[in-house]
Design a protein around this nucleic acid. Structure first.
Lengths: 445, 445
DNA sequence: ACAGTTTCCCGTAAATGC
DNA sequence: TGCATTTACGGGAAACTG
């Protein structure tokens, strides 16, 4: 009898398909006013109960934080609040599908001091599904709970909500269902955090972080000797996560191919960039994420040679907006340095360590976005977008005197050596002239 | 007594501030679920009536089309449906402000044949505000009506809704409040339509259409000898209006300055472009709207000279997306033609008729969008976007042999003559090589 | 004034209806 | 099936609210 009771008490299972699933197969982030779906399955497969069980969703049922933590927001369901009878599914199990669930904040928060110690994206909530089964003269209260969810009201809160989800997931095995986790959030060790981050890149870009990339992130994130990463560091003050999330979004929207191919080194420190490139021939470059731009931006650093001395440069990072009209492959392919009175050059020849640019990127060349879609022949003169800079390392005096130290045997190198002059009247523009006097060796960021 | 009755019957005046006001000061387009505001004023300034009058909005009150035209949509107010008492305004007049009005479609349309002869953007609706005044033992029914409005559910319907509003406005003087106007829409004469169109450009771009532009539009729109423009032609089949509306949006978002300055000829036929430019020195160009792209796009045509023969070319039109990262002025300033083995050129020197490019556009040069915002000096190499084409009219054999027929006295011409070579390996790309063999004389579009 | 949070709403994409 | 129309909702910005 108690066995049956226990069985039935745990017989409901919740399966959610929230809108913002974000590639982990779990209920995670719910946005007010946006529909999500939940399926509840009755594990005890007793067709006799068909049509007898009414399941009702209850938000934050029996959650102590609602009462104790003042300022904890309260929510209600706007649709499908009505319970749904159990019905047969194709595989014969009893289940109920809540297809049109939606949350709405219930005003009139808990009185008391309305000062919550938590931000809204640190509040963890749950949804319970309850039903009552009368059988053999006994009454069984059956319920099933979702994993914790974060409720947001705007999509600009999703990244920090996701940070909470990740943090919780990493700690939940030790403290199951502690909805007050973020009142006093434990730190994570780097060994816990590293695979978590790597997994994000695997999810978004089909490729995890390699040891070098993780090492750079380690140096950037772990600054105290105990090797622990604190929640504040991760999600608050410097907000390492916000920076990483911007990069993940950049990969998802514009760099999926190149990231998957492994052509984007991405996480490299300035120092490491220099030491890697200085050992390579001029014309070698690598692709890095901007460390200063929050919204996700990407740049490339290259090494050139002038007067026998090597210099490292980095182009001003490309933003999402620019990449939406000019892919990174095209931007690399057509990057042009101009020198007054001299021929123009593309300083990018070998992707580090020694991959000819074309063999890495040629398959992605398509010139620029919208115009390339209509490949039909028109009377219009076709065109492409290109990116142009003033050469930060002008070669010494006599024109075409000291060619770059580049292997000319390679065909593709040859073609990218057929370089040309560009509009030198750029230099008439006052804002550009100062660039001539900037120190050359510093790597950007 | 009847005087008073008439006075009071007409004493309510409606003043709306709809969301989509679109620069004409009238109630025009309302979107379901989107808030709009209406102010009702009581013209008879009798403070004695203060707090005695309850005004209630009624949608499509006494509109016959609701009953007769099957398929006519029905709407209700979702908020502020409750009537609002009259209150004193700062200037002492009695008025009621409906601050939170919002429409929702009422399902269950009129039965009968659900086939409406009208599209939703051709349905004209009105909102009436009604109140009852008891005074001196008599009962006065007072009401005020809005001008016709078009109700849409999505912003992709706004352009055609606006077409209806314009058409109605032009005809309403003759047929006041004919809500069935579009069941049999009368044509407009060109003399009616032309100022209507011009007014749109004045509203959006602070500059009306000039006679030449109107003449081109006339030739494009008026094809029957009676000089009438039919609603079908304007808004349906070829949808001249959709094309114009895309251009208006382009001006609003990216070309406001240049349009206001009058530097955009815009509406010029291919034939006229040719005849204008062929009489001008090589390097003369003009700016035209694409006639084929529906979403609003802009191109420039220029004349060059090769073997003593003049050619007209037009670049593939620029779309809104591209103009959001590269302004038209910059695109013109840095437009580059490349010729294999030859120096690159910018074919754009004089804006038609003979304005040096820089004197028209230099004030708007800012290189490309986002990067120019941070003018602070960083270690990054600055960069800009440029547009590049393969030269459609390669000059004859010996390099730098036949310079363009350009006045070299002008400083700025001089600087734009310092032209350079560009990446000739463009020509290694198979898709570009065919461009060499295209006919040169045809003007695009 | 300000920061955290929510609301508002355009524009695109997807869903729906006919 | 295709087209007309509505719904959905991401994302940027305004409005709110303490």
């Amino acid at each position: 009898r108690t066995l049956i009771r226990n069985l039935l008490t745990n017989a409901l299972v919740v399966e959610k398909q929230p809108v913002m699933q974000n590639l982990l197969h779990r209920p995670l982030i719910l946005k007010t006013g946006v529909r999500f779906k939940v399926t509840v399955r009755f594990l005890a497969n007793l067709p006799a109960f068909k049509d007898q069980l009414k399941v009702k969703p209850v938000f934050d049922k029996d959650v102590e934080e609602v009462k104790t933590v003042s300022g904890f927001r309260l929510f209600d369901f706007t649709r499908d609040d009505s319970k749904v009878l159990d019905v047969d599914s194709p595989n014969g199990a009893l289940m109920a599908a809540f297809e049109h669930m939606s949350l709405k904040e219930k005003k009139a928060r808990t009185k008391g001091s309305c000062e919550s110690p938590l931000t809204v994206t640190e509040e963890l909530h749950i949804i319970r599904f309850v039903t009552v089964l009368h059988h053999a003269g006994e009454k069984f209260d059956i319920e099933a709970s979702s994993l914790p969810v974060v409720v947001v009201s705007s999509s600009n809160q999703v990244p920090s909500a996701w940070a909470s989800i990740m943090w919780f997931n990493m700690l939940s095995s030790r403290e199951p269902m502690n909805l007050s986790l973020f009142i006093n959030p434990p730190p994570l060790t780097w060994e816990q955090l590293a695979p978590l981050l790597s997994w994000q890149f695997l999810s978004v870009g089909q490729r995890p972080l390699d040891p070098d990339q993780l090492s750079m992130l380690h140096d950037k994130i772990v600054d105290n000797p105990d090797g622990l990463v604190h929640w504040t560091k991760f999600s608050k003050d410097e907000s390492v996560w916000m920076w990483i999330d911007g990069i993940l979004d950049l990969i998802k929207k514009h760099l999926a191919d190149l990231w998957q191919d492994g052509y984007i080194m991405g996480f490299v420190s300035k120092q490491r960039t220099s030491s890697l490139l200085l050992n390579k021939p001029a014309g070698t470059f690598l692709i890095r994420f901007s460390e200063s731009i929050r919204d996700g931006a990407i740049t490339f650093s290259w090494v050139d040679q002038s007067n026998g001395e090597k210099h490292i440069h980095a182009v001003e990072p490309y933003t999402k907006k620019e990449l939406s009209v000019l892919s990174l492959a095209d931007a690399i392919n057509h990057y042009t340095l101009t020198t007054p009175g001299r021929s123009s050059t593309n300083p990018l020849v070998y992707l580090y360590p020694d991959i000819p640019k074309e063999s890495a990127f040629a398959r992605y060349y398509k010139f620029s976005g919208p115009s390339s879609t209509n490949k039909n022949i028109t009377a219009y003169v076709h065109r492409m977008l290109a990116v142009v800079s003033v050469n930060p390392t002008p070669p010494p005096s006599p024109p075409r005197d000291s060619p770059l130290d580049i292997d000319m045997d390679n065909n593709q190198t040859d073609s990218s050596q057929k370089l040309d002059e560009f509009l030198t009247d750029l230099l008439d523009f006052p804002e550009w002239s100062h660039l001539q006097t900037l120190p050359q060796e510093r790597v950007a960021d």
